[in-house]
Measured scan of single mutants.
Amino acid sequence: MKVIFLKDVKGKGKKGEIKNVPDGYARNFLFKKGLAIEATPANLKELE
């Protein structure tokens, strides 16, 4: 799953980066803790 990092996550990504991460990791950790959001076309446009 492609995500946009909202905060730095040690060993995974830095704020503003767009990366592919495992689906479970994104849903169960990154999204729940507010560390990242899904890289949807709308979210990507908002980032620019």
Rank of each mutant, 00 (worst) to 15 (best):
G16M: 06
Y25W: 11
L6T: 07
I18W: 03
E17H: 04
E46L: 15
K32F: 08
T40E: 05
F29L: 08
K32M: 12
L47W: 15
A42L: 09
K7A: 14
K2N: 12
F31P: 03
V9T: 04
A39S: 04
F5N: 00
M1F: 08
G24R: 11
A26D: 06
F29Q: 08
D8S: 09
F31V: 08
E17K: 02
E46M: 14
A26K: 03
G13H: 12
L47M: 12
E48N: 12
I37Y: 06
V21T: 02
D23W: 12
K33F: 15
K2E: 11
E38W: 06
K10Q: 12
G16F: 08
P22W: 08
N43R: 12
V3N: 00
K12W: 15
I18K: 02
E17W: 04
F31R: 01
V21M: 11
V3E: 00
L47K: 08
I18V: 13
V3P: 00
K32P: 15
L47E: 07
L35D: 02
P22Y: 08
P22A: 09
K14P: 01
G11A: 06
L47F: 13
A42T: 09
N20Y: 15
K33H: 15
G13W: 12
V3S: 00
L30G: 01
E48V: 12
M1H: 05
K14E: 06
E17Y: 02
I4H: 02
I4D: 00
I18Y: 04
L6K: 03
V21S: 02
E38G: 04
P41W: 11
T40W: 04
E48G: 14
L30E: 01
I4N: 01
F29Y: 14
Y25P: 05
K14F: 12
G24T: 12
K14T: 09
K33W: 15
V3W: 01
K45V: 10
G11F: 06
K33A: 12
K2F: 15
G34F: 08
D8H: 07
K15H: 05
A36S: 02
A36P: 00
F29R: 05
F5G: 00
V3K: 00
G24V: 11
V21D: 01
K15I: 09
G34Q: 08
V9S: 02
R27L: 14
A42F: 07
E46I: 14
G24A: 14
A39L: 08
K14S: 09
P22S: 10
K7R: 12
L44T: 07
G34Y: 08
L30F: 02
K7V: 15
G34E: 06
K32R: 12
F29T: 09
K2A: 11
K14R: 14
K15D: 03
V21W: 02
K19I: 11
N28D: 15
F29S: 06
P41K: 10
A26P: 02
N20H: 14
V21N: 00
V3F: 00
D23A: 15
I4V: 11
I4P: 00
L35I: 06
N28G: 10
L44Y: 05
K45E: 11
E48I: 13
L35A: 04
P41D: 13
F5V: 00
G16T: 02
F29A: 05
F31Y: 05
V9R: 01
A36N: 00
V21E: 03
N20G: 07
E38H: 07
I37R: 08
P41N: 11
N20Q: 13
E38F: 05
A39I: 05
L44D: 05
L35P: 00
K14M: 12
K12P: 01
P41F: 09
L35S: 02
G11W: 08
K15Q: 10
G13I: 05
L30W: 02
L30M: 03
K14I: 09
N28W: 10
K19M: 10
M1Q: 04
A36T: 00
K45G: 09
L35E: 02
K45T: 09
P22V: 06
A36H: 01
K2M: 15
F31T: 04
G34N: 11
K10F: 14
K12N: 09
K19T: 07
F31N: 02
K33Q: 13
P41T: 11
K33R: 14
Y25G: 03
A26N: 03
I4E: 02
A42R: 12
F5K: 00
K10S: 10
K33S: 11
L44V: 12
E46P: 07
L44M: 11
N20W: 15
K45D: 10
G34R: 09
K15P: 05
K7F: 14
V9A: 02
K12V: 15
K2T: 14
F29D: 11
K45S: 12
A26M: 08
V3G: 00
K15S: 08
F29G: 05
V3Q: 00
K7Y: 13
P22N: 10
Y25M: 08
Y25I: 07
L44R: 06
